[in-house]
Design a protein around this nucleic acid. Structure first.
Lengths: 281, 281
DNA sequence: AAGTGGTCTAGACCACCTG
DNA sequence: AGGTGGTCTAGACCACTTC
């Protein structure tokens, strides 16, 4: 892969390559030498060594534990990919989900959210921040914005048990109908990292979703951050040469922005599924 | 959002917040003071300041230009999200795609790829690395692995023009039928950053795809990295209360790992579309 | 107490860009 | 030439963990 092997003038790269060898020669969970030991062995200062370690921690290959040491990470994410995600195993169970409400307030929508929800910036919305947990472990943070007029009497407890859309339908006579959702890669900031328990600047998925009811009225604007080391999206695409007849957004099928040979946007999507990443061991 | 305002004992956080104010009080493209100036103003050392700047650069809010200075980035990605991705504008054009082949060799499959493609690790595969460009600008790197026996006479030129699946069908009588694709967040490593022209450790999307022909035989294993500052996935979900009848993977509809209230995996996907991110200006 | 990672400093040298 | 970002050093102090 590498060209110009002599290009590694940067000490940081040299140190990183040495660390990679250390990681590969050890089993997951094994400790590696301490920072100061490695500094001496490699003849670099501690900040330089730490900078190289930072990269491997962000990539998910190394784990730091304060006062204990550094260890080879259990799950390799970007490096080896997740093994054996064969089709028949896709719809697998993956733990029990729960929610913990972090914030629950009624505030003015403001410019950005007002525009999203097609309401006045001065209109009141119910703002809810909640932590999503799987088997007690934080998986994501979700920030919901719902026009307050739609959900009178909504309580934090409503957001911790059961399905929010069921609450909308049964208690508030709002029937969700469709949603447009975007997904982008991002990295965690300090707050997100603290809440979902990963290092700062870890890879994560940023979801943004606008949900409408059966009259086309926006009822929910959600913005959520999912940790990247435990979460991924799996989709199955049908590629028959005879194109399936029109479905919503079939225009995407010949989307000019879709590169030839790349399935994204080319085939019809049978299902979009989001689930746990099985550990790589 | 922040609790415990006095918790900011870390100089890095204080500096970052100051930088955020600088960014917000300026227009995209505007310069901000130099590193040394900011050090003096804030009373911190340069490594400390640079560490804070690193975070905003990775987040996509600041841009560094060697020898020139630091500037407010044009597109805010994770911070403000992308405005106005309203439904009717989704299937929009987004430039002309092209490919540049970086590597084209026949090698042994090896353990991992052999397992993916269900062939012997000693079997030969055609390995192709290519850069995908939009309007001449690098957008992604794609690593393809195809059993060499399937594509005799395939040339690099075949991979730079037209649709690979068309080549497979017309020249090699291989008809792709379905694919399973996974998407994960990641960050760029040195090589990826250099090739697609973004800083190291920038957010990116990692695609992995296994494509099968109409006999169920694996014909293509692809692993690609898309830059996160120009690429995102948009999907439209139908949420009718009367569930649509069985589609492939409808099992995902009641996937136990899907959090209540979260659309991911709950609704049926009308289309999965991947396209350019429109600039945020 | 001793070792670990977490943070920060003051200063140095280099490469790049603009006058 | 002078300013900019890019890299690196040697050392310090703190917080945490283990013995």
């Amino acid at each position: 892969m590498d060209r110009e092997p002599s290009r590694s003038a940067l000490k940081r790269e040299r140190v990183r390559d040495h660390l990679l060898e250390l990681v590969e020669s050890r089993a997951p969970g094994d400790p590696i030498p301490s920072e100061r030991t490695l500094c001496e062995q490699l003849g670099v200062s501690r900040p330089t060594l730490r900078s190289a370690v930072d990269e491997l921690v962000t990539t998910g290959l190394l784990i730091r534990e304060h006062g204990r040491g550094m260890f080879v990470a259990r799950a390799k994410i970007t490096q080896e990919l997740v093994p054996d995600a064969s089709a028949h195993r896709l719809p697998r169970a993956s733990g029990n989900w729960a929610s913990r409400v972090l914030e629950f307030t009624v505030v003015q929508a403001g410019a950005r959210v007002g525009r999203k929800l097609h309401i006045s910036p001065a209109a009141e919305i119910t703002y809810i921040a909640r932590l999503r947990l799987v088997d007690g472990e934080p998986m994501a943070i979700e920030y919901l914005h719902v026009p307050a007029a739609l959900v009178p009497g909504l309580s934090p407890a409503d957001m911790e048990s059961g399905d929010f859309y069921d609450v909308l339908r049964d208690r508030h006579r709002v029937r969700v109908h469709e949603a447009v959702q975007s997904i982008e890669p991002t990295v965690t900031n300090e707050e997100e990292a603290r809440l979902i328990g990963v290092p700062v600047l870890s890879p994560a998925l940023l979801f943004e979703r606008l949900t409408r009811d059966d009259t086309g009225r926006p009822v929910e604007y959600v913005h959520s951050v999912y940790r990247g080391d435990r979460y991924r999206i799996v989709s199955r695409l049908s590629l028959g040469d005879a194109p399936a007849p029109a479905a919503p957004f079939t225009g995407a099928r010949h989307h000019p922005g879709i590169p030839p040979g790349d399935l994204a946007g080319r085939g019809d999507v049978g299902a979009l599924m989001v689930g746990d990443v099985q550990p790589a061991e």
